[in-house]
Each structure stands twice: as structure tokens, then as C-alpha cells.
Simulated assay, not measured.
Amino acid sequence: MSDPLLTRLTPPDVGKDLADRVVDTFATTTGPLGEVLVARSTEGVTYVRPVDDPDGFRAEYRRRLGRPLVPDDRSVPAIDARTRVDLRACSSFERDVLDATASIPAGQTRPYGWVAREVGRPAAVRAVGTVLARNPVPLIVPCHRVTRADGSLGRYMLGEAAKARLLAAEGADLDRLAGFTTAGVVLIGSDTTGIACLPSCHHARRITDAHRVPFRSAAAAREAGYRGCLVCRPGM
């Protein structure tokens, strides 16, 4: 699996006693939704959360990562999808899930089941949801691009309104996608190519009304003789 996040991760080092490392720091910086609290190790960003509870931020960091935080009085760069992260405190499964999520193109969405297939655990949809609900670095690893199976946006740790705002800022046509969800459409086929895509795939966006074939399931698309898009990989 090819993913852009992997090049920004430090090598897995789960066996190392992380408590022996230099104490991590935290500061306020900006992200796509405004100000956030950011914790950093010497290798990259380790944790991102809203700015409303600094004491709770430090306590939760200590609980989850097992080490303290100290304030950083230096200027911290704004965060975005290109920011280097340090996910060594995550399990291998958690890193796989976050890597797959980071490969979703901006302005597009993928269901939880897609992420589960990408990491080779197609039955682990609920476990994938748990990992993303606890994503240590939202706004960097874009868990806002992961949706329910029917295409509806679903929950987001920073709020459903924030999820919609992020996707809209990336160019997603939320009204169009909501229309497909309401109609029960989970795949869009092209009768000129015989290829079926997830509705948010950039190839699906180019299918004109006259050649668009809606499907309510991958099985229905297969039975109609369609094959899955190699870009969005809808699991057919």
C-alpha cells in the first residue's frame, strides 16, 4: 500500500522505553480550523487537540503516552497535512489505520470499511472506527475524510460541523454527496467505461448525467458487469 504519511513517520520503535526520551513540549499554534494545542517530540508532532483545556490536554497526554509535557516558548509552525508526525507510541495496527487514512486525497471521502480493507483487516471496521475516534493527530492525519458506509459524514472528534467545514474547504461537493446518500447510492458507474467508483472519487465527478449508472451496493455493480476503479478501490 502506497501512502504519503509513511515518509513522515519515524521508524517503528515500539520496544524502546519512550519514558527515557527528552520530555515532550506543547504550545498553541494554528491549523485548518483555527488555534489548537500541539504536543511535539524531537521527531515530530505527537498530539493535537482543541485549545480549550490545556490542563486536560497535559493530563490526557500523560495518560496516553506515559510521559509529561512542558510548555514550549518557541514559535510553533502551523499544522497541516504536510506536518511531520511521530506515531511511535501507537500500535502497528493504529499506524496502519492512520497511514491508510492519510492516503485519502483531499476533498474525497472513504468509508470505514475501505480503510479496513486497505490495512488487510476487512472485518475490523469497528476497530478502525475506534482508532480514528482516538486519532492523536487530527488535522494532520485527515480522519475527517472517513465516513459511514452509506456515505453520510458521521461523527468527528472535533464536531460534525467541523468535519463538513474541512471537507468543503478541500473542494468536496457536500450537497452532491448528500444527494447520493439520500438516494441510497454507494457507487457510481460509467456506462462508457464499465468502471464503478465511490461517489467522491475524482473520476466519478467527471461522469456526465447521461452516462452515470447508480448502484446501491458493490454486489449490484459486479452483477451488472462493472469493475472497480483502480484509483478509489471500492472493494469490488
Rank of each mutant, 00 (worst) to 15 (best):
residue 171 G to W: 07
residue 124 A to E: 00
residue 142 P to V: 11
residue 178 A to Q: 12
residue 172 A to N: 03
residue 144 H to W: 11
residue 203 H to E: 15
residue 181 T to Y: 14
residue 195 I to M: 08
residue 118 E to M: 14
residue 156 Y to C: 05
residue 143 C to L: 08
residue 166 L to V: 09
residue 152 S to G: 14
residue 155 R to E: 05
residue 130 T to H: 09
residue 154 G to M: 08
residue 196 A to F: 07
residue 138 P to V: 02
residue 144 H to P: 04
residue 141 V to Y: 05
residue 200 S to T: 09
residue 116 A to T: 01
residue 147 T to K: 10
residue 181 T to D: 09
residue 189 G to A: 02
residue 186 V to C: 06
residue 194 G to R: 06
residue 128 V to Y: 02
residue 116 A to G: 08
residue 207 I to C: 07
residue 123 A to Y: 14
residue 119 V to N: 03
residue 201 C to A: 02
residue 189 G to S: 00
residue 201 C to M: 02
residue 135 N to P: 13
residue 188 I to M: 13
residue 162 A to Y: 02
residue 140 I to W: 01
residue 185 V to H: 04
residue 176 R to T: 01
residue 181 T to G: 05
residue 195 I to C: 12
residue 151 G to E: 01
residue 124 A to Q: 11
residue 207 I to E: 11
residue 152 S to I: 06
residue 196 A to T: 04
residue 177 L to W: 12
residue 138 P to C: 01
residue 197 C to R: 01
residue 204 A to Y: 09
residue 162 A to D: 06
residue 126 R to W: 03
residue 202 H to V: 10
residue 128 V to T: 01
residue 187 L to Q: 02
residue 201 C to L: 02
residue 163 K to Q: 11
residue 122 P to R: 02
residue 155 R to S: 13
residue 182 T to P: 07
residue 140 I to V: 14
residue 208 T to I: 06
residue 187 L to T: 08
residue 171 G to V: 05
residue 203 H to N: 14
residue 200 S to P: 07
residue 189 G to Y: 04
residue 180 F to K: 09
residue 152 S to C: 08
residue 136 P to I: 03
residue 208 T to C: 11
residue 156 Y to H: 15
residue 203 H to I: 08
residue 125 V to I: 08
residue 207 I to R: 05
residue 129 G to Y: 12
residue 189 G to P: 02
residue 195 I to T: 15
residue 205 R to S: 10
residue 189 G to K: 09
residue 128 V to R: 11
residue 133 A to P: 06
residue 117 R to D: 04
residue 142 P to I: 06
residue 119 V to A: 08
residue 141 V to D: 00
residue 133 A to H: 09
residue 126 R to F: 15
residue 150 D to W: 04
residue 192 T to H: 14
residue 146 V to I: 09
residue 208 T to D: 12
residue 199 P to W: 10
residue 175 D to Y: 10
residue 163 K to H: 09
residue 195 I to D: 03
residue 140 I to S: 00
residue 149 A to S: 11
residue 171 G to S: 04
residue 206 R to G: 08
residue 163 K to R: 15
residue 188 I to S: 07
residue 139 L to T: 04
residue 128 V to I: 06
residue 120 G to E: 00
residue 205 R to D: 12
residue 195 I to S: 11
residue 145 R to M: 06
residue 135 N to R: 11
residue 136 P to K: 02
residue 184 G to L: 04
residue 149 A to T: 13
residue 199 P to G: 01
residue 135 N to L: 10
residue 145 R to W: 05
residue 196 A to W: 12
residue 172 A to K: 05
residue 163 K to W: 15
residue 123 A to E: 13
residue 187 L to R: 15
residue 138 P to E: 00
residue 161 A to F: 14
residue 165 R to I: 12
residue 135 N to D: 00
residue 176 R to M: 13
